[in-house]
Design a protein around this nucleic acid. Structure first.
Lengths: 113, 113
DNA sequence: TTAAAATACATAAGTCTTTTATGTATAATA
DNA sequence: TATTATACATAAAAGACTTATGTATTTTAA
């Protein structure tokens, strides 16, 4: 099962920032694979969504990039800037708060976890 | 504080279906007010978003409508159809599942609730 | 050994949902 | 009696993502 795409909307930036906050540096393809793994294939980030998002984060000064060559193929690593780090915390806690509100609003019982 | 608008995206239909599932019949303006109340003003549904959504639910056969006159002013009540009822359950549980996945992915600790 | 799949980047047209703006009208309140 | 609240509606613009396409290298399987 894969979540309907509307649900993912608006959370992509938060996911990317959080992964970068936990991993120091990651490249685009790696991010798509990590999310796929961690969510047991339930969330699959498409490249068409990811790359523009990464470029926007860079344009906003939230990440910096370093190219690295693996053989002849280039890999573009992304790292959080200090601003990016605080933005990551901010976005994650906003999402956490939002999800609490949604659970209350929709009367969703907490999972035994 | 109001959540950044991207977060709300994709959840509006679910919110509307769930409120209708719990209340038998509601009208548009009432839905906006109820959500505002229940979320302590943190989620404010705009009319520009709500009415097209309600019309779409009707077009999809998930709700039926009855007009009611309060004085000279019309109120349009929405009621879930049988299809709408099962759709409501489906959407709410999908969202619950999605939020669990997100909490795991973003390492968000459960709130003491 | 070579065709297919995986890795790795990128962009652009189209779609969908929501925002923002606007419009109409009645009822209640200050 | 002017303002705010109630109550509907639509339409242009914005924004985020999907879908499609393109390029190229490396690995795997037939």
């Amino acid at each position: 099962m894969i979540y309907s795409s509307e649900l993912i909307k608006g959370t992509l930036k938060t996911i990317v920032l959080k992964l970068l906050a936990d991993n120091k540096k990651m490249y685009g393809y790696e991010i798509t694979q990590r999310v796929k793994e961690l969510t047991l294939d339930k969330i699959q980030i498409t490249e068409g969504a990811l790359y523009p998002t990464l470029h926007a984060l860079e344009a906003d000064g939230l990440v910096t990039t370093q190219a690295e060559y693996i053989g002849k193929r280039v890999r573009k690593y992304y790292t959080l800037s200090p601003t990016g780090k605080s933005k990551a915390k901010e976005k994650v806690s906003e999402l956490a708060d939002f999800m609490d509100t949604m659970r209350f609003l929709l009367d969703i019982k907490p999972t035994t976890a």
